[in-house]
Amino acid sequence: MIELIRLSEREELPLKLLLLADPSEKLVLEYTQRGQCFILEKSGRIIGVYVLIPTRPETAEIVNVAVDEAFQGKGYGKALVLHAVETARNAGFRTIEIGTGNSGVSQMALYQKCGFRMTSIDRNFFLRHYDEPIFENGIRVIDMVRMSMDL
């Protein structure tokens, strides 16, 4: 059985999963305090997570979405993103945003399949915010590709 559940502020964060999508524990702990964290459970095991934060009036952002590596490629990431979109819509937001590294080819494809469109590139984002270099798909992650959807 699969369940999507909002964590309360007192519940322990699935930090290991959150760090799959964002290697900075400091940043993860900071933005999880500002937003809502939702977990995807399958048979009592946490296999996915996303964090939704308000950023500007009428705008929310998915700042982290991750699926346990053993469960990737099975549609759980899409379910998380679509749940975040519906959660933002139900909360009255008019726009939802998401960003990914310049090397996140599969993430960009997923977000576009869910209805997001590319809006901008935040040049050198990962150089400004991360002390250690990040590599994905053999490519250094330097820029943030920003995407959004009108709700």
Rank of each mutant, 00 (worst) to 15 (best):
I46A: 12
V85L: 13
V141Y: 06
V81A: 06
I47C: 08
D131P: 00
R34S: 14
M1W: 08
R6Q: 10
I139S: 00
L127C: 05
P14D: 15
S43G: 11
E12Q: 12
D131H: 01
G75H: 04
G44T: 11
S103L: 08
Q107E: 13
A21Q: 15
R45K: 14
V63L: 14
Q72V: 05
Y50V: 07
K74S: 07
D22L: 07
K16E: 12
N124S: 04
Y111R: 11
C114Q: 14
M149K: 11
G73A: 02
L27K: 15
I47D: 00
V49P: 04
E97W: 06
G35M: 12
I139G: 01
A79P: 01
Y76C: 05
L17V: 12
S120M: 02
K16Y: 02
R89M: 05
N64R: 10
V141T: 09
V51S: 00
G73W: 03
A88Q: 09
E25P: 02
A70G: 03
G48E: 10
N102H: 12
L7K: 12
P54N: 08
T55K: 13
A109V: 12
E9K: 05
T87A: 10
M118W: 06
T87H: 00
S43H: 10
N137I: 05
V65S: 08
R146K: 15
E12P: 01
T59E: 07
G92P: 04
L52P: 01
N90V: 11
T95R: 10
E58L: 09
S8A: 14
P133R: 10
K26N: 09
T95P: 05
T87P: 01
L80S: 09
I142K: 14
